[in-house]
Computed example of a mutant assay.
Amino acid sequence: MSNLSAEQVILVDVNDRQIGVAEKLAAHQLGQLHRAFSIFILNSQGQLLLQKRAKHKYHSGGLWTNTCCSHPRPDESLAIATQRRLLEEMGMTCELKELFSFIYRAELDQGLIEHEFDHVFLGYSDRPPILNPEEAEDWQWIDLSKLQADIRDRPEVYTYWLRDCCDRFISAL
């Protein structure tokens, strides 16, 4: 977890105005509201690219989630951060557009609290990802209706933030 201590996140207020920075791990230990993003990539059949988080991640390891999630660095725009992380995690790039944003707070494993102002982005690609094993251990394309049903039937296999925003994402399409 030493790398997590070196990484910083942008602390924000409920209007997404920057109010400071904090070490990533400390922000998650204290439940401080910080800026984040979630990327959803759809293929030409309208299926969503899911990733299974690597088991050794600092929280939510081994859970299925949307294509890519992360945090912009201080002084890094969301446009740059989303492209950087999509390439780092999934080995891919594509045009992204922001659909909406929302705030959520969840108590996670490892005693951590996720409290994020999350910007949700949409992109399209038919290319299979090239996973970074430090970030993700598996991937799949899934029909959106099947995903909604599976989240209802087996919520424990999905990340909190995907469960929280899946219906909103589908409604925003």
Rank of each mutant, 00 (worst) to 15 (best):
Cys69Gly: 12
Phe37Asp: 01
Asp118Arg: 07
Lys57Tyr: 13
Ile130Phe: 10
Gln148Met: 11
Arg84Asn: 07
Cys94Val: 05
Glu89Cys: 03
Lys55Thr: 15
Glu98Tyr: 04
Pro133Ala: 11
Gln51Trp: 08
Lys52Gly: 06
Thr93Ser: 14
Asp138Cys: 08
Lys146Ala: 15
Thr82Gly: 06
Tyr124Ile: 10
Cys68Arg: 03
Gln47Arg: 07
Leu131Phe: 08
Glu137Met: 12
Thr65Gly: 13
Val120Ile: 15
Asp143Trp: 10
Leu122Gly: 02
Gly62Ser: 05
Leu99Ala: 06
Lys57Ile: 11
Glu134Asn: 15
Arg105Ala: 15
Glu88Asp: 09
Ser44Met: 09
Arg105Val: 15
Ile113Thr: 13
His59Asp: 14
Arg53Met: 11
Leu86Ser: 02
Ser38Pro: 09
Leu144Glu: 09
Ile80Gln: 14
Asn66Trp: 07
Met92Glu: 04
Asp126Trp: 04
Thr93His: 11
Phe37Ile: 00
Ile113Val: 14
Gly62Glu: 04
Trp141Ser: 00
Arg127Asp: 12
Gln83Glu: 14
Pro72Val: 05
Phe102Ser: 12
Ala54Ile: 09
Glu88Gln: 08
Gln83Ala: 11
Arg53Asn: 15
Arg84Leu: 05
Pro129Phe: 05
His115Ser: 07
His71Gln: 15
Cys68Asp: 00
Glu89Gly: 03
Asn66Gln: 13
Arg85Ser: 14
Arg85Tyr: 15
Ala81Tyr: 00
Tyr58Lys: 08
Gln45Gly: 12
Ile41Trp: 01
Thr93Asp: 09
His115Gly: 06
Leu131Asn: 06
Cys69Trp: 08
Arg84Asp: 03
Glu89Leu: 01
Leu99Lys: 02
Ile113Pro: 08
Tyr124Gly: 04
Ile113Lys: 12
Asp143Met: 11
Glu135Thr: 06
Asn43Lys: 11
Ala54Gln: 13
Phe37Gln: 01
Gly62Gln: 07
Glu88Trp: 05
Ile130Cys: 13
Glu88Met: 04
Lys55Cys: 14
Gln83Pro: 06
Leu99Thr: 04
Leu48Val: 05
Trp64Asp: 03
Leu50Glu: 00
Ile39Ala: 00
Cys94Leu: 08
Phe40Asn: 01
Glu88Lys: 06
Thr67Cys: 02
Gly61Pro: 03
Cys94Arg: 06
Glu116Ser: 07
Glu95Ile: 00
Ala106Arg: 09
Cys69Thr: 13
Tyr104Arg: 13
Leu108Gly: 02
Pro74Glu: 11
Trp139Gln: 06
Ser145Glu: 13
His119Leu: 02
Gln148Pro: 04
Thr65Arg: 07
Thr65Phe: 09
Asp75Leu: 14
Trp141Thr: 00
His119Tyr: 06
Ile130Ala: 11
Leu78Lys: 02
Lys97Glu: 05
Pro74Ser: 13
Phe37Ala: 00
Glu88Gly: 05
Gly46Tyr: 00
Leu48Arg: 01
His71Ala: 14
Arg105Asn: 14
Gly46Asn: 03
Ala106Leu: 12
Ile113Gly: 08
Ser70Lys: 06
Arg105His: 15
Leu131Ser: 08
Ile103Val: 14
Ser70Thr: 10
Leu49Asn: 02
Leu99Cys: 09
Tyr104Glu: 12
Arg53Val: 10
His119Gly: 01
Ala149Lys: 10
